[in-house]
Design a protein around this nucleic acid. Sequence first.
DNA 1: ATGGTGGTTGCACCA
Length: 268
Amino acid sequence: MSLRIVSWNVNSIRQRLDHVARFVAEWQPDVLCLQETKVRDENFPASDLAEMGFTHQVIRGQKAYNGVAILSRLPFEAQDHRIWCSKDDKRHLSVTLAGGSAGPIELHNFYVPSGGPTPDREANDKFGHKLDFLEEMAAWARVHARGRRLLLVGDLNVAPLENDVWNHKRLVRSVGHTPMESERMANLLEAGALTDVGRHFVPPDQPLYTWWGYRFPQSLERNYGWRLDHALASEPLHDALVRMEVVKATRAWEKPSDHVPLLVEIAT
DNA sequence: ATGGTGGTTGCACCA
C-alpha cells in the first residue's frame, strides 16, 4: 500500500477548483496540501472538495492573502498548527495520518513568506520576515522532526540549489535564490535531519522546477522555472519514499496557477 | 510586465 500526498500552491482555491478536480481525477492523490487558498474559512469550497472524495478537511484561511488547507480521503488522527514569527497569518497546518503498520505520519503544510522585492533585511521588512521564518522552522525541526515519521511539504519560496533555477548566475541576487535563503534552507534540512525528496529522486545536476512566473513572457515555453515547492522527509520516513513527481502539465492548462503540484508517494 | 483579491468597481496590495 502507498499514500499519495500532494503539495500545490493553487493561487486561489476558488479560481482553481476545475484544475483541482481535473488533477484529482487524473493523478488520484490521497491527500492534498494546498497553499495560497486566499479565502476565509466560511467561504472555502468545502463541499466541492468533499464531492471529489476529500471528506476530511482542515482549513486555515484569511481574506485575500495566504491560507492553507489539508484535504484527505483518509481520516486524521490529530490536527494542529503553530504561530510563526508571532504572526497569525495562516501559513501552517499539520495533521497526523494513520500511516499503516510502520506507524502514524505527521504531515506539515507550509507557506513560507515570499520575501518582497529586494534581498535586504534593512530595506525590506518582508525579507527579514522570511529569513526569521526559515530560522524558526529550523529551530522547530531540530526538536520536533527528529525521531518522528514526519513529512514537511509546501511552498517554501526558496530555490536553494543552482539547478533549482533556470539561470543561477543571473538570479543569485534575486529573492528566492540568494545565498542567505539557501543557507537557511540547508540549515533547516540539517537541523531536522531531513531528506530533500525532490533531490532524492532527481539528482542536483539536473534542472527541477515547480514554478513558472506569470510576468516573464513565455516563461513556460522557455522553461524559465524555479523550484520553490518542496517535500522534506524525516530520517524515520526515508526508506518509505517511493516516488516523486512534479506535475508540470497543469501549468499549460487554461488559466493555471503559477505553481504546479508536487506529488510524493510513501509506502505504508 | 501577469494574475487574484477586495473595493474608493479604478486601483492598491500582494505574489
